[in-house]
Every structure is written in C-alpha cells, then in structure tokens.
Design a protein around this nucleic acid. Sequence first.
RNA 1: GCGCGUAUAGCUCAGUUGGUUAGAGCGUCACAUUGACAUUGUGAAGGUCCCUGGUUCGAGUCCAGGUACGCGCACCA
Length: 901
Amino acid sequence: MVFFTSLDKSFMPTEIPKAYDPKTVEQGLYKAWEESGYFNPDKLPGKRREAYSIAMPPFNVTGILHIGHAVLLALQDIMIRFERMRGKKTLWLPGTDHAAIATQNVVEQELKEEGKTKYDLGREQFLERVTRFADSQHGRIVEQISRMGASCDWSRERFTLDAGLSTAVTSAFTTLYSDGLIYRGDRIVNWCPRCQSTLADDEVEYKEKKTPFYYFKYGPVVIGTARPETKFGDKVIVVHPDDKRYAKLVGTSFEVEWILGPITARVIADPVVDPELGTGAMTITPGHSFEDFALAQKYGLPIEKIIDENGRLTEAAGPMKGLPVKEARKKVVEILESKGLVDHIDENYIHNLSVCYRCGTPIEPLVSRQWFLAVDKPAKRLGNKTLKQRALEVVENNEIAFVPDRFTKVYRHWMENLHDWCISRQIWYGHKIPVWYCETCHADQKKYQAGKYYWLPEKNTPTACPRCHGQDIHQDHDTLDTWFSSGLWTFSTLGWPMVKDMGFDPALVDLVISGKKTKTFRLRDHDLSVGETCLTHDSKTKKKFGYLRILRSTKIPFNEIALQTAGHEPYKSQAELKTTFQKYYPDITITPDTPVWVYEYIYQKESDLEQFHPTSILETAYDIIFFWVARMILMSTYLVGEIPFKTVYLHGLVRDKKGRKMSKSLGNGIDPLEMADKYGADAVRLALVIGTTPGNDQKLDEQKIAGFRNYVNKVWNIGRFIAMQGEGKSLSEAKPETMADYWIFSRLNTIIQEISNHLVKYEFSQAGEKIYDFAWHEFADWYLEITKLEGNVALAHQVFGEILKLLHPYMPFVTEALWRQLGYGKDLLMIEIWPSSDPSKINPAAEKKFAELQQTITEYRRQRKESGAPAGQVMSVPVPTGLAGELKPIIERLAKVTFTT
RNA sequence: GCGCGUAUAGCUCAGUUGGUUAGAGCGUCACAUUGACAUUGUGAAGGUCCCUGGUUCGAGUCCAGGUACGCGCACCA
C-alpha cells in the first residue's frame, strides 16, 4: 500500500455542505475528467503496456437512455475505471447504431401523424428526413451517457453509418462475396408486410393465438391446415412412408375437386410427416412454408407464389386475386364448405403466430430473391471449415468465455441450428448493398442466367457497366440488415480495414511521429473521415511508419489555408507550400480557389486494431446474444481472423417491482435520468449493480436507489468529518499506534485483496457490497468513533484515501469530489493507482482482539438497553477481568458505561 | 417437445471451492439526537434455505426425482 498523500493546507469545514448535493458537482466533475484527456488511452499518464478495451454496445439512434442502458454503462464503467486505475491502457469506445428498421419506423410514425407515408416523400427525401432525425438524437444520447459518469473515449466515437464504418461494411460484403459466402438466391424468407421487408429468422417472434384449424376433404384423404388461403395450388400430398393408412396411395395420382375446380394431385412419402399429427397426411405449399419449401426442393416440385408482398393473393387465386389474406381465408372456407369439402373445424387450436419483432405484424413466409450469408459452406480462409464451425470452435475451446457460463450452451444451441442468414432488407435507411446492375446485360437472357448482369464495383459510384460499358446501371435498391454492420462493431470502430494510405515527405516523418505536426494539406481527397485510421508511409522509401487517426477533415480553398495555426509545420509561407504541392501534384494547377483537403490527426505507432483488438470483454444484456454477440463472432473470426472479445459478460433485464418488463405502454419504466436528477448518478449506479448477479433479471424500485443515495451521503459525511478533524493539522505522517490503528490497517489490507479478487472475477455485486460495508460499518462506525477519542486523524485520512480509490469505480462522482476536497493529490482520483494489499499489514492478532472489543461493547449496549437505563445516564459496571488498560476509555465511551473498581 | 433459470427473513436479494450460531438492504419494534451524517446512531424481533430421497463426519451449497413461477429455442400440415 502506498501512501503519498500530503496535506499542507487547513480545511475549511464550513465549505463542505452537510448533505451531498450531486447536482452541484456532477456536471463539473465530468467536464474535468473529459478535459483531462484521460478517457483517451493515448493520453493516459505513465507507461501502460497492457491494453484493455471495451466496445460499448452502440445505442440505437431512436432511443432515449433507459434503465437497461444505465445498467450497461454502470457495469462497463466499473470495469474500465478499475482497469485504468490498475495501470492498463484503457479504451472504452462509444457509438450509435442506425438501427434501420426501428429508426425508419419512428419516422414513418411521425409521417403518419402528418397524414403522409414514406412513398409520398420518395426515397431520397425520406432518407433526408431520417438522417435529420438521427442527427437530432445524437447530442442527447451523448449527454445521457455522460450523465451516468461513463468514462468513454469520445474522440473515438463512431456511428454505424459514418464513412469509415460504411467502408468496413462494403469491404466485409465484398470479401464474403468474393469468397463465395454471400450469394443471391430465390428462397423462402420471413416477410413483414408492414415493414415491407425481409427479416432474419431471429427477428421473428412467436405469439400464441387461438385460430380455427380446418380439416378439408382432399380427394381420398383429409388434410389439416390453419391457412386455407395458401392452398390454391397444392397438388402434392405427403404421408409418412411407414403409415399403413396411406401406403396404397403412395406414388399414385388422381383428380380431386379443389378450391378453383378439379386438379390433379399425387402422393409422395417422406419421413418429415408426423403420422400422429392431424390426419397424418398433408398437402404442401412450397411458396409459403419453410418446411414445405425444403420438401419442394428435395423433390424438385414447382414453387408457386400465392401471396404477394402486400399480403394479398396473386393470380394463382384466380377470381380472388387481390384479396387480403384475412378475407381470402373466409372466402376459401366458404367455397370449400359449399362444395361439401369441409370435414370439420377445430376451433380451439392454439397456433404459434409468427410476428415481426419490430412492429408485431404477422409474418408472411414467401419466396423472394434475396442476398444470403452461407453459414454452412466450407471456406478456404477457415481451412475449409464453415463460418458456423469456426464460431462454435472458438467458444468450445474457451477462446471466448461466457459469464455466466450457462450461456455457452444457449449460444451453442443457437449456432448449431443457424440457417443461412438473409442479409438483404427492403428498408430504405441503412447501408445499400454494394452491388450494381446493368440493365443492358440484364436484357440479354443468357448473361442474366449466368448472373453476370451485376457486379461489385471497386469504387463506390461506377458510371458504366464494366462488361458492356452501358450506362443504364443502378445500385441494388436493398439495404443490409442492421446486424450486418453491428456485427463488425468491435473492429470496424478500430479502423478496420485500413485500406487508405497516405505518403509523407521523408523530412516530415519525424515531425509526425513526435507529434509536432498534426495537420496535413492534400490536393487530392484521401476520402478520410473523422474517426478513421489511415496507414502512412515515407514517400521516398515507401516504408510504413505508423498510423494516423483522423480528428477532423475539412475542405477549403488554397488561399484560405492558415499556416499560422498549430500543427502544420514546416511551411513558412503559402509560396513554400505551393512549391511542395507542385512537387507531389505536378498535374494540378494551383489557383487561389483550388480546393485543399485539410486533415487533422493524431499519430499512432500501432493502430487501434493492433492495440485494442480482440477487445477484452463484451458486456451487454443477454437478450441480444443471438442478434449481436453471435454475429460479431461470425464476422470477426472470418474477416479479421480474430475473436472479437475474450469474455462475454451478460447482465439481466431490469424489471419493475412486480417483475414485469418495463415498457412505455405499461408506464412502469424507471427513467435513469430522472433518478439521477433526484438521487445522483452514483446512487443510480450502485442500485443497479449491487444486489444483482450476471444473467439474472432484477426487480428495481425507487426505494433501492434512495437507499444508496443515503450511502453516498454517508461517504460524503465521512469525508466532511475527516476534514473537520484534520483542520489545521499536518496529516502527512500517519503511523499506526493503537490497537484500533493496527486493526483498521489490517482490515483495509484484507479488504483490498478481497475486492480486487472479486473484480477480477467479475463479481461486481460482491465487491461493491464489501467496500460498502467496510467504509460504513467498520471504518465509520468503529474506527472513526474511536478516532474521536484517540485522534489519529492522519491515519484516518490515509485509510479514507484508500477507501475512496476502492469506491471510485462504483461511485465516481462523490469520490472524485472528496478526493479534491480533502486534498489528496493534484491529479484526478480517476487515474490514481489502485490500492495493493500489503500482507505484512494483515494482523490477525489485532483483528481478534478488536473483534472481542466489539463484542464486549455490543454486550454492554445490549445490557443497558435491557436494563432500561435512561438515555443520558451512564451505567456503572464492574471492570471485567483481564481488560487491557488502553481499551477502557474506548469501552466507556462507546458503550456509555463507567467502570467501578 | 428440447433446453435454461429462479425458489433463502414481511419485501428485494447476496451466499465463491460442502465446514462453527445462514447474511445484507429496505421494512417492523424500542431507544437515542445542541458538533461528521435524522439521507444518522444504538439495540431487538424476524428463517422448516420449495418438497422428497440420496452422497457425506457434516448439505442452503453436491446427486436423483418432484412442485411452482419465469425465460429461450423448436414444432406448428
């Protein structure tokens, strides 16, 4: 344990208010932290070899901070602050996600209130509006994250749609496509008729609903269905091969009377049919059922589209074309009824209705031409393993560990059953699929068949088809699944794929490295945007010398270049700059109006990707393990060839007092910001972390937060007391002298060890509880009470300093405020060195003696109480045998007794 | 159907590898208060650790079976 505090000024206790008022200090402290630069790993003091990084789950731009976010921020901030104090080079990278469907829905809702639809605006205008909305949300999100005290590096903040991340998305798509893992195909997909888009399998939710289940006479068999409206084209009956009831029919064809008149049906046998279910015979509808589609592929059956993208019937329904599903169902049943083909109807059938996870609309499975990511295809890059196999392997062999461990099983189960991922969406907002189509080639059927009418351009906006040079080309109208870009989050935010390169004059290289040059002018756009990292080389030797992370990118006319601003050395005049330019850009004529790109950057010897990837831990709620966690593992293991994180810590959901999910419609949500206003951010953080265990939901009510507000205030008053005691005294030399001193020293060193162990093992609740208890019920209740008698204020001051460090990750605001008030050090508590336990200070004898003292005092107090002695009166008791002289006054005071001889 | 979680004080929950008398916060009851803190202090009451069986010198903890509540996945002709 290192004590280095010195106190040479007198305290002015009157300056410390009686009650802690978070409002007056929190904002200022956050600003101080931010301005210190210590959120940024590059600016942390000292040599920090080991990196520690967390990618903050990107917040949806739709959202306002809810209690779940607050949990996430509290936990991650604890991890980051702890590791920062332990001397690691800590990066916590924040950002936002465009959340395509969710965001688009919000804007569509706004439009609806104005009586408009997105089609009224058209794609371009609509997108402008969505973008405006997303931008307007940004500031608020940042403010809310800050409000909770999150010590994340804002200089590295990213947005899934920013230029750098879009490059990453394109690059990812291109790589996967070139490696044959992304393909385009006509397959059955989940279609949301309201969102007008496909959904991935895990974006479909199931709701139980009672629907009639119909039994129809279909030739010689009776078939059951919940969806009569899809049955127009059913021509194939499937039965189980071992089902004796139908054995004679297998392989035969016959004519049956059906919805639109007689059709020819045939019978096949396949083991997928469950003979126990319904009548044991079914007809198949390949165009609108996943199972039937698989069967149709197996037997080469035709696939007919009965329902269109708007949820209406197609030509296949003959006269019923255009009818919405609901009405069509009624009509079909009526027709079959009139033909006497209804066997019976089961009205009590419980159906698992599939609905869209974003809007609740029933899903229509239908066949559509979409883009897919093949998860079961052997990939060269993975040594002929599939994406799925690799993603399972890294968890199986413990490269990635889940906390709590049980989620490993959940993950494995999901991954094993994963089908090819449909990645194209018909949502407008998002990353457009980077594929271009040529109408001229399309018109040529042969090329169409060969799939050669589309290509992936190298540059973003091609002007002509590379094959026929025709100009009638357009980009794919679809966008990528939001989770495609979030799947890249751990590495796309760290500068992957680093395709951009910039040369520097050999004379400047040293200046760049030393940080004397932090700005560069270019006549050609390097297409660099804020947050991106670019590789740099010496233009003479072509040797790589490091990386630049772009802080600002602007375009100005040549004559507006301000050479006087910092960081642009070594040019002394515009003429000199012009000469330099001319040397590197001999083909460009420089006029005063020539546009110049100005890049401001910081130099990094190692790129963020090299330093911070794989990230140390991913912390998020367990409900997005599939959507996000699994996708990141798939993407990272393939594209970067690295796991995205070493540990996945999953927290539970926050529920209301009654255990219900918090939701807008129930109005039972607890707003973390309102709570922070009322009780302070520290109290909110403590309430969300203490008394909870990973992976388990927690019930929260305001009382709990109020309770921790009391604790924060207690800590404040401990500080206030020490300040008052120490007024005017020199506190620089602290030595344990009395038994109580040795005891508190011993306890402190024990507790340091325990807390550090808990934190390393992600036992945040237990670590928090222990330090909470130590500060209040050992240090304040016992040690400080004795201090009033013995007066070793210097020691109290020092021990409290250590307590502040231990508490800091949990309650950063109040501890930082006290650190300052009590004059512990010039620099911020947030970068103090985490206490280390000194085993030589652990003193079992002192602990034992003190425990006996505590027992004695408690016993006297109890006796007093039982005897009903009046409050003010001191009770006389005989001196116990063997009482050490030094303890006498302590007992007399704390137990309010007086010893008679 | 498959898998998972939870069950401990009135309430909300901790309880690490099995080890004296099972803990905390809130709530309850009683008492205290002119100097750190009533957002406080002191003391107390309060438990068949869901049930049954097993392993063990010893089980809240491990094993088997069951009950209740919750969740995920699948099926859904």
